[in-house]
Nucleic acid binder design. Structure first.
Length: 843
RNA sequence: GCCGAAGUGGCGGAAUUGGUAGACGCGCUAGAUUCAGGAUCUAGUGGGCGCUAGCCCGUGGGAGUUCGAGUCUCCCCUUCGGCACCA
């Protein structure tokens, strides 16, 4: 064996051998336990792989290789999330169609990913932009449609002027487009939605069943936004109308001194002729319409609104007439689009009441503890009696719970208790409200899966689902499953115009109505494509049966492999892909296609790898590390090892070029130690100390892989190799077992050395080593001795020495004697094998 | 404002059923080797005082529980992430 570690020849060689021998290809095997490892499949961008990609892939690969060696039947697939805007925009810029640029990007990504030696089953590669895949994405849409989970509806939707398409709520961050950061406008459009809200409660509850990072679970809980309260009805005086409100504080009903409707509330229109100041009202509504969501929800903005003159509502508890306003701090999209305003106990209402000089009636007064907590929380300087007095007078707003006052028969009750009693009295309903909205899946863009729907004017009379387009009525006719896929046409100008580019395709519009057979005038296809998150919501199912052209997957295959046992990817998908996939699984389960509730049992996020300057890597900063260059210069094994050694998988951590050298040196050291070892006669013995270290390392690496603490596993191997380099004498069986535990981390080097030792099987397919607990135990242990909690000496004793003996030795240690002379020993503590502590007091 | 995560040497980070704080790696210092640079090897490396046995301080800050706290409890500060005029 050459003493020079030449990663280039070794890595290429084994990648080819593994591939030729198909050693990572798997089939369902009932005799073995299965394990499904998965990384979030990459979006093949024109920029090529980022160093963050191999971080999660390496972590997944280590676990996949480990589980395989442990005797599991491991499914470890890879594919391409290939539809979507970046590819389309890039294609437009280059003047080349997206199917060509995407293919190029995929080829480049595949080459790069293969250079790392991941143990993927490449025969299962999927590509979401391939008709053999999106045929089944369309099939998924049809099932959703059939089961009432896909529907078309006119709604206020998020529109991005720069991307020229609508966006899902999940793709709007702080009022801006998640992708291009452009401010999002609200537009009234008729669009396709998936009914995610049907699963709101289950999506929330089942978070308790899965092993996911707490921040992701918290983000999903926030996103679903459950709140419990009551729905109450207020009559509008002298009309047949009433105003429904949702409130979490029905206990404050007696303090509701006015009401507010969202400016776009439909009731405003209906009351038009009773409203005395219609002109003013209309003006305010128009102004609101013009505002963006961002402007409207600006918390620092002063409250505005207009009173509906001539309109009075009746507080159902007090029977009193109260005024009604419209104001843009009430949103049509949450609850009922109307609120009862309780200025004494709600900050927003209080602020509004101050401005419009409305009465503030306190109906809840805090007890002493609640008052103290309130003063602390709000950092009020006044003394508590004064604060209480101010609350009573309605001079300040108290938003906590307390004792009921000014509330007729409920006076004296705890407010928590009064909530439901008051609700009951006025005939209200307990109600649970979610913040989650349905998923808008239509996109006015080209590079996506066409929505398999045809609109037909001729079928209008006997169809229940009717839509209007340009003043004409059309029946909604789903494309029959046998006619899938609806192919993405190629005769298009794919530049975005605000309308789907598919509108202009001749080939796309040559369609017969699947229902009545009519064609030509009055029959047209849906021209929007689906959000790419639809494609990625079920790809983990397709991996189990990627070439099936009769179904998206065979049920027995999905039943064998699913759910995914370990899933690793970025945290940016907290409420996007990860929520949508959970919805898909639940929906498909209810349709009878799946028998499990959650797609991903265990999820881990990889932290971001930052540039050497500690900043996010970006071209403009010039701190981008190119994975190709790293693999070239240091090798795939070094890169894999380094990314795992940098720190905990989930932490953000900066790249370090000198840091990677340290890991490279470690691999060179292994190489050199073995090469020198091979030159001599193979030793038949090992020092007891070194043998113990070998076994300890097997154990430590095993436990650390199980806990996904790869950085400490590597550090344990470094300690062993340092000792091996020192002693140079060790038995072959110990060395071989070390190579096996190293192999998930540095598979090429391990495989090469394994063969150099004379083995002709694959180290990737052998058996994971056991360790000997007896051997691991120390014969002699070092015990620190503390005096009053400070370490003063260390003693060495044989393992298992009796307590009195240990204490005797401890008291006899020189430096201990110094600290206990002339002192009274109060207590002697011995934690077996750990520590001695002598507690002394002055005479 | 609500929810969540995290604060440890010059740097990345180890160590939590409470038990030697700083493993491993980087960097740095000194020495060896070398024409030189790089690479490699050996020793040292939390701060301070003696600089040799030893002592004091030290895990964001402050209290507390304990023989003993990075780890547990309470309060506060900072950073990052999610939600947010959500009724």
């Amino acid at each position: 064996m050459d003493k020079h570690y030449d990663h280039k020849s070794i890595e290429k060689k084994w990648q080819n051998v593994w591939e030729e021998n198909k050693i990572f290809e798997v089939t369902e095997d009932e005799s073995k336990p299965k394990y499904y490892t998965l990384c979030m499949f990459p979006y093949p961008s024109s920029q090529g792989l980022h160093v963050g990609h191999p971080e999660s892939y390496t972590a997944v690969d280590i676990v996949a290789r480990y589980m395989r060696l442990k005797g599991f039947n491991v499914l470890n697939p890879i594919g391409w999330d290939a539809f979507g805007l970046p590819a389309e925009n890039y294609a437009i810029k280059q003047g080349v169609p997206p199917w060509e640029t995407t293919q190029k990007s995929i080829d480049n990504f595949r080459r790069q990913i293969k250079s790392f030696g991941f143990s993927y089953d490449w025969s299962r590669e999927v590509n979401t932009s391939d008709p053999s895949y999106y045929k089944w994405t369309q099939w998924m849409f049809l099932q959703m449609y059939k089961h009432g989970l896909a529907y078309r509806s006119k709604a206020k939707v998020n529109w991005c002027d720069s991307c020229q398409t609508v966006l899902a709520n999940e793709q709007v961050v702080d009022g801006r487009c998640e992708r291009c950061k452009n401010e999002v406008r609200q537009k009234d459009l008729e669009q396709w939605f998936f009914r995610v809200t049907k699963y709101a409660e289950e999506l929330l509850q089942d978070l308790d069943k899965i092993d996911w990072p707490e921040p992701i679970k918290a983000a999903q809980r926030n996103w679903i936004g459950k709140s419990e309260g009551a729905e109450l009805e207020f009559k509008v005086k002298d009309t047949d109308f009433s105003i429904k409100v949702f409130t979490t504080r029905p206990d404050t009903l007696y303090g509701a001194t006015y009401m507010v409707l969202a400016p776009e509330h439909p009731l405003v229109e209906k009351l038009r002729f009773q409203i005395d100041n219609w002109g003013e009202v209309e003006k305010y509504r128009e102004e609101t319409q013009k505002k963006s969501e961002l402007q409207r929800t600006d918390l620092n903005k002063e409250k505005t609104g207009v009173k509906l003159k001539g309109i009075k509502a009746i507080n159902p508890a007090t029977g009193k007439e109260i005024p009604v306003f419209i104001a843009d701090y009430v949103l049509m999209s949450y609850g009922t689009g109307a609120i009862m305003a309780v200025p004494a106990h709600d900050e927003r209402d209080f602020e509004f009441a101050q401005k419009f000089d409305l009465p503030v009636v306190a109906v809840i007064i805090p007890n002493e503890d609640q008052l103290a907590e309130f003063i602390k929380r709000k950092v009020i300087a006044e003394d508590s009696e004064k604060v209480k007095d101010s609350i009573l007078k309605g001079e300040i707003c108290y938003d906590g719970s307390g004792i009921m006052i000014n509330s007729a028969e409920f006076d004296g009750l705890a407010s928590e208790e009064a909530k439901w009693k008051i609700t009951e009295k006025v005939g209200g309903q307990k109600k649970i409200q979610y913040r989650l909205r349905d998923w808008l899946i239509s996109r006015q863009r080209f590079w996506g899966a066409p929505i398999p729907i045809v609109y037909c004017q001729h079928c209008v009379d006997d169809s229940k689902k009717i839509v209007e387009k340009d003043g004409k009525k059309y029946a909604v006719v789903p494309v029959p499953e046998k006619d899938l896929p609806v192919l993405l046409p190629r005769d298009v100008d794919f530049k975005p115009t605000g309308e789907s580019p598919l509108v202009n395709s001749q080939e796309f519009h040559q369609v017969k109505c699947p229902r009545c057979g009519a064609e030509g005038e009055g029959v047209m296809r849906e021209v929007d494509t689906m959000d790419t998150f639809v494609c990625s919501s079920w790809y983990f199912l397709r991996y189990t049966d990627p070439h099936n052209d009769q179904a998206p997957f065979a049920q027995d295959k999905v039943e064998y492999w699913l759910p995914v046992d370990l899933y690793i990817g970025g945290a940016e998908h907290a409420v996007l892909h990860l929520l949508y996939s959970r919805f898909f699984v639940k929906a498909l389960r209810d349709m009878g296609y799946l028998k499990f509730d959650e797609p991903f049992l265990k999820l881990r996020n990889q932290g971001m790898i930052l540039g050497e300057d500690g900043q996010k890597m970006s071209k403009s900063r010039g701190n981008v590390i190119n994975p190709d260059e790293v693999v070239q210069e240091y090798g795939a094994d070094t890169m894999r090892l380094y990314e795992m050694f940098m720190g905990p998988l989930e932490d953000a951590k900066p790249w370090s070029t000198t840091g990677i050298m340290g890991v490279r040196r470690f691999l060179e050291k292994i190489w050199l130690v073995v090469a020198e070892w091979l030159e001599k006669e193979r030793p038949s013995d090992t020092s007891a100390e070194l043998e113990r270290l070998f076994h300890r390392t097997y154990k430590k690496v095993t436990e650390d892989i199980e806990a996904m603490k790869f950085n400490t596993a590597i550090s344990a191997m470094m300690i062993l190799v340092n000792q091996m380099a020192k002693e140079k004498k060790f038995r072959q069986d110990l060395l071989e077992k070390f190579l096996i535990v190293l192999s998930p981390f540095a598979p090429h080097l391990a495989e090469e050395v394994w063969h150099n030792l004379g083995n002709d099987n694959f180290i990737a397919l052998v058996k994971w080593p056991e360790w000997d607990e007896e051997l691991i135990r120390d014969e002699e242990i070092e015990i620190p001795v503390q005096v009053n909690g400070k370490v003063r000496a260390k003693i060495r004793v044989p393992a298992g020495t009796a307590e009195n003996e240990v204490i005797k030795l401890a008291l006899g240690a020189d430096n201990v004697k110094k600290h206990i002379t002339d002192k009274k020993i109060i207590k002697q503590i011995y934690i077996p094998g750990k520590i001695v502590n002598i507690v002394v007091g002055s005479e």
